[in-house]
Amino acid sequence: MLSTIVINEVSKSFGKKLVLNQINLTVESGQIYGLIGPSGSGKTTLVKIIVGMDSPNQGNVQVLNTVVPNLKLLQKIGYMAQADALYSDLTGEENLSFFASLFKLKKDVQKERIAYAADLVNLTADLKKKVQNYSGGMKRRLSLAVALIQDPDVLILDEPTVGIDPELRQSIWAELFRLKKTGKTILVTTHVMDEAEKCDRLSMVRDGEIITSGSPAELKNQYGITSLEEVFLKAGGKQQ
C-alpha cells in the first residue's frame, strides 16, 4: 500500500522555542489517522506544515509522493483549519461557491458539491444566511464543508468537531468512514477520546515529539489500561 503522507525528520521552531522536534510519521492511504496530545503540543503546527502553510526548519513532508509545498497538490488536499476562516459578510453558499471556483470546479459540478457538502454538515437550510449570523458550531460545520468542496483525496482536519453537537458529530464521523471506504486518506487532530477510538492509527504528540503511535487497541495494551482517556493522561500528561 502506498503511503499518502510521509513526514521525514521535521523540526520547527518559532524564535528560540522548539515546537516540533524531529517528527517522523507515515499515514497509509485509506487510513483515518488521529493526532492527539495536550494543548500547545504542536499538532496545529504539524498540520500546517503538512498542508504547506508553514515550512519546517528541517526535514520534509511528502503528500501523495509530492514534496510539499506544491500547487497541484493543494487541489487534492481538503484542509480545515483550527480557527474558522470564513467571509462573514458573505452567505454560506457564497463562501462555498467562492472556494469551489478557486478549485476550478465547473458550474454544474459546483452546484452538486455545494449541495452535497451543505447536506453533510446539515446547513442546507442556512445557506442563504450571512455567516456573521451563524452560531459557532454552524461556522465550524461550514469550514468542514469548505474542506470537502473539491472532493479531495486527502483530508486534513484540525479539530473538526469542536462545538458540534453529539448527533451531528456522529453523522460527520459516519461520513468520514464512508469517505475512507472510497479510498480517501484522513488526518484529524482531536481532544475527544471517543473520536480517537475511531481512528485506525493514533499518534500522541507531546512537547513537539511523537511519544507513542499505534492503533487504539495497541496503545491500550501498551499501557495496560482499558480507556484511551487514561492513555492520554498517562502518556500525554506531565510525567511525575
Binding site: V51, G52, M53, L71, K72, L74, Q75, I77, Y79, A81, A83, D84, A85, L86, Y87, S88, F99, L102, F103, K104, V146
Partner: peptide, 14 residues
C-alpha cells in the same frame, strides 16, 4: 487577521 488569506493560500491559487 481573520485567517481567510491563509485559507485562500491553501487552495491552488497563485
Amino acid at each position: 487577521t481573520t485567517g481567510t488569506l491563509e485559507r485562500l493560500l491553501a487552495t491552488p491559487i497563485l
